[in-house]
Simulated scan of single mutants.
Amino acid sequence: MTTDAAPPAPTAPAEPLEAGRAKRRIPMWDTSRFIAVTLVVVGHAIQRQTAGSEHALALYTFIYAFHMPAFGVISGYFSSADTPTAKRMRRTFTDIVVPYIVMQTIWTVVQAIVEGGKEFNPTKPTWTLWFLLALGIFRLILPYLAQLRWPLAWAVVLSIGVGYFDNVDSTLSLSRAISLLPFFLLGWQVKQWGVFDRWYEAPRRVVVRVRVAAAVVFALWAAACVLFTPQFEEFDLHHWFFYDDSYSGLGEDTWWAGGVRFGLMVFAAALTAAFLLLVPRRTVWLTKFGAATMYVYLLHTFVLYPIRESGVLAGEHSAWPYVLVMVLLACGVSLFLAQPFVRRGMRWLLEPDVSWLFRRDPAEQAPRR
């Protein structure tokens, strides 16, 4: 376990799925977002192996318990509840809407060629694109929720309540957005409380004690995933971590199903806290890749799709040595896609210049003489 000197408190970095426009960035959060997106890649890489390997299923369950909640917390931490300015509203288009339409179109074509019968439907996000829409929804409703007393509590009520309605589904990622909303609000609320401002300045002895506790939490969860894999599989636990099905869709059409979701949300929040507290506060070699999260998130699927669809990961290729190979491959893919040359080469696609879409802001026009 490493201890590190507390860094100065610089200005806030960009959103977790942005390419990084901020001049000064907080090392801990850049490292966190890169590790989180790498966990996303690992989860997608081993998903096909979970059907035939308890090792893959245990790792998959371990990751899915907290990796998307962690993304929600990070997103909320660097979000603003202020009245949106013209610049922020335009960035919603450039950072979310445009990349979503571009990638949804590409994936529709790819799946139509490979699988056939695919129609373009922008209301049904393909694979990983749901989080872009969810992030857009988070940004839109945060200024409204922030006007309420106890906004985090209301977000929890919405998340629990939406599971009782079968008609709230994956259309426009609405089910997942509402279900994961508490984590986004938690990140925003933690920023208001100044929790991590104090963590940056915490003395080493406090850091060591907190990180030992965080490591114990992770170790216990890892042990549970290994020891209770059959029980977790029988309960279909990893599907609960998707936050995209109603309770009846999960096979638990009972009045107390919302209590299960609440318990899992509390557990995910604890794991997310442990994850963030274990990340070094200082700059490490992974930190520089935190600015490329969007590229890793959106492009890794093109690398993994041929492998997943080929069927090569079934049968004997689900054994633990092949699971390890896929984990290493996923880490390599994440590191490769975070390289500067990939960002330079793909910026035209993921961050196209769409200034022509916007009318000229009157405030930016020079006054006439």
Rank of each mutant, 00 (worst) to 15 (best):
L142C: 05
A51K: 06
L140D: 09
R88P: 06
S75Y: 02
T128V: 15
F93M: 09
L57N: 14
S80E: 14
V73L: 15
I141K: 00
I35Y: 02
R149L: 06
T94R: 00
T108F: 00
R33V: 11
A45M: 02
V114K: 01
L59R: 04
I101N: 00
I74K: 02
L133T: 14
I141C: 07
V156H: 03
V40H: 03
L148M: 15
P151W: 05
L129E: 09
I35M: 01
V40G: 04
G117L: 00
E54L: 10
W107L: 15
F34C: 10
L158S: 11
Q147A: 15
F93N: 03
V37P: 08
V97M: 00
E54P: 09
A65T: 14
Q47L: 13
G136D: 11
T123Y: 05
Q104R: 01
L133D: 12
F120M: 05
L133W: 07
I106F: 09
F62H: 06
I106R: 05
T94W: 00
S53F: 00
F78L: 02
N121D: 15
D95T: 07
I96Y: 05
Q47W: 10
P99N: 04
Y77P: 09
V42N: 10
D82V: 04
L148F: 11
Y64I: 07
Y77W: 02
R48D: 12
V98L: 03
Y60W: 09
P99H: 00
P69N: 06
V42I: 15
P143C: 07
L158H: 01
R90T: 09
G72V: 08
Q104H: 00
S80L: 03
T108K: 01
M68S: 00
I106S: 06
I46W: 01
L142D: 06
F66G: 09
G76D: 04
V41L: 12
G136W: 03
F62T: 11
L59H: 07
Y144F: 15
G76R: 02
T61Y: 03
A58H: 06
A134C: 12
L132F: 03
F78T: 08
L140I: 12
Q47G: 09
Q111R: 12
Y77K: 00
R139D: 14
